[in-house]
Design a binder for these strands. Structure first.
Lengths: 63, 63
DNA sequence: TAGGACTGGGGTAATTGGGGTG
DNA sequence: CGTGTCCCAATTACCCCAGTCC
């Protein structure tokens, strides 16, 4: 069990949609977008410009 | 793949807003905030510093 | 290619945090 | 000692619409 330890700058991590992150924090999707624009989250971008968030990063902040 | 790491005090739990908790106990939202600051509740924090309370914890204290 | 669902923006109301005070 | 209330600043929610996803 070592998926939460050795990586925080990689790409082989489960990705979450803005709606999923918003539901996890009990917050609006627009709020998740603000967090990303403020640099509080480091999302991966789709080629169309949509954000996808790393599940590891989310579960860390969820505590 | 288990993300919650079999914890019962972490995620995988519905969250409540301060207003919802206040309504459940029939108190002001300021009182709920005092309970949290006094350590009587263990809320999850949004990245903006707002508190979200675990529904399981609230329903427990409601008995 | 068409279509429904979701997202990224922006603007404006509503909620929340914190301190201080009855 | 616990709670309700008033204040202000910050954060968040809800509204729109154009663009993206699948």
């Amino acid at each position: 069990m070592r998926w939460g330890q050795d990586r925080m700058d990689n790409d082989n991590d489960q990705l979450m949609t803005p709606a999923e992150v918003a539901e996890a924090f009990r917050v609006d999707t627009a709020t998740v977008t603000r967090w990303a624009r403020a640099g509080l989250l480091n999302p991966v971008f789709t080629l169309g410009g949509h954000r996808r968030y790393r599940a590891s990063e989310i579960s860390d902040r969820l505590r």
